[in-house]
Simulated assay, not measured.
Amino acid sequence: MRGLSFVTVPFLLVRHELRLLASLWLWAARRTDGAAAGGSAFGYSRGQGAMLFGFGFVCVIETVMMSVLLRDWPTVHHVVLVLDVYTVVFVIGLHAASVVRPHVLDPGGGTLRIRQAVHLDVRIPLERIASVRRELRTTHERVDGELDLAVGSQTSVTVRLAEPVTHVTFLGRRREVHVVRCHADDPGGLVRAVERAREGHAVP
């Protein structure tokens, strides 16, 4: 991948795993990351919880079955067991990261943070928002300048920008985006809150 070294990619992967583990701790402690005083948090994890826990259950069943099948090969069994257990932890960590890192509206700071677990965090200044509306989409085509953050294959809020913002991908690539689509458990509440914040942040 152009612009990425053999050192950078492992570093990004390790950082991602550490953030997932930190999310598990925050989830257990019932804490939220990034919700500043005076800000409002808007969750988006409800749409994927059942799917991820279903996948986690399948992984647990696979772990048990592989333990039975590999009981006569202890070395292979131990290696596979570690990988299977880590997969279960990874799946739970993905859900935990979505729970503890919600979208955050900070009227005092004049920003809307659109997030997706530990993979993405886009900060949008309120003055750059041209419009925000509730819009349910279940299909998304990749279009230059648009960012679709689907949860459970759907987005429910569309934010259009008067000026683009820079989105940094998981591997560090920078993209200019002028449309951001995301999902929220309460899309109407998020839209109304952003509209009120824009009105309060508008320059007389």
Score class of each variant (00 low, 15 high):
residue 114 I to W: 01
residue 96 A to Y: 03
residue 138 T to Q: 01
residue 126 L to E: 00
residue 70 L to A: 08
residue 140 H to C: 12
residue 85 V to W: 10
residue 140 H to W: 13
residue 76 V to K: 08
residue 77 H to K: 12
residue 98 S to N: 14
residue 75 T to P: 02
residue 137 R to C: 11
residue 99 V to F: 07
residue 94 L to I: 15
residue 97 A to S: 11
residue 104 V to H: 01
residue 111 T to K: 01
residue 106 D to H: 07
residue 104 V to C: 02
residue 71 R to P: 02
residue 100 V to G: 03
residue 128 R to E: 09
residue 83 L to C: 14
residue 138 T to R: 04
residue 137 R to N: 12
residue 136 L to E: 06
residue 119 H to S: 15
residue 77 H to I: 05
residue 132 V to N: 00
residue 110 G to L: 04
residue 107 P to G: 03
residue 139 T to P: 00
residue 100 V to I: 12
residue 139 T to R: 08
residue 114 I to C: 07
residue 121 D to E: 14
residue 93 G to N: 05
residue 86 Y to K: 12
residue 72 D to G: 11
residue 129 I to G: 01
residue 117 A to N: 12
residue 80 V to G: 02
residue 125 P to F: 04
residue 129 I to C: 02
residue 138 T to G: 02
residue 108 G to R: 04
residue 81 L to P: 00
residue 124 I to H: 00
residue 138 T to P: 00
residue 120 L to D: 15
residue 117 A to K: 07
residue 139 T to E: 05
residue 84 D to L: 08
residue 133 R to C: 09
residue 87 T to Q: 08
residue 98 S to K: 07
residue 101 R to Q: 11
residue 80 V to R: 00
residue 92 I to F: 13
residue 87 T to K: 04
residue 103 H to P: 05
residue 80 V to H: 00
residue 84 D to C: 11
residue 96 A to I: 08
residue 138 T to F: 02
residue 113 R to S: 03
residue 100 V to S: 08
residue 85 V to M: 13
residue 70 L to P: 00
residue 115 R to C: 15
residue 72 D to E: 14
residue 106 D to S: 08
residue 111 T to C: 05
residue 72 D to W: 10
residue 135 E to K: 08
residue 132 V to G: 01
residue 92 I to K: 04
residue 77 H to R: 13
residue 86 Y to M: 10
residue 140 H to M: 14
residue 92 I to L: 13
residue 87 T to Y: 05
residue 129 I to P: 00
residue 80 V to Q: 01
residue 77 H to M: 12
residue 138 T to W: 02
residue 85 V to R: 08
residue 111 T to G: 02
residue 119 H to F: 15
residue 81 L to A: 12
residue 83 L to Q: 15
residue 125 P to N: 11
residue 111 T to F: 04
residue 116 Q to W: 12
residue 103 H to Y: 04
residue 103 H to W: 01
